[in-house]
Simulated assay, not measured.
Amino acid sequence: MRALIAAATGLAVALALVLTITAVGAPSGETSPKPLLTTVPKHP
Rank of each mutant, 00 (worst) to 15 (best):
A6K: 05
T38P: 00
L36S: 13
E30K: 10
P44Y: 08
T22W: 11
T20Q: 05
T38C: 13
L15F: 10
V40E: 09
S28E: 13
H43N: 10
H43V: 14
P33M: 10
K42H: 12
A3E: 14
L4E: 10
T39R: 15
S28T: 08
M1I: 11
L36M: 13
T31A: 15
V24D: 04
T31F: 13
S32Q: 10
K34Q: 13
I21L: 13
I5C: 07
V40P: 02
H43Y: 09
A6G: 07
V24G: 06
I5T: 07
L15A: 12
L11E: 00
A16E: 00
A23I: 12
P33R: 14
T22N: 05
V24S: 05
L17T: 06
T9Y: 05
V13N: 01
P41Y: 03
S32V: 06
A26E: 05
I5Q: 12
L11P: 00
L37E: 12
L19T: 05
G10W: 00
P41E: 03
T22I: 09
P33A: 09
A7T: 05
A6R: 15
L19C: 06
A7I: 04
G29T: 02
T9N: 01
K42N: 10
K34E: 14
L11W: 07
L19H: 02
P41D: 03
L11V: 06
K42C: 09
M1C: 13
E30I: 09
L11Q: 02
P41I: 04
T9V: 11
A3I: 08
G25M: 03
T20I: 05
G29C: 04
T9P: 00
T9S: 11
T39N: 07
R2W: 08
A6E: 11
A14I: 01
I5H: 03
L37M: 11
H43S: 12
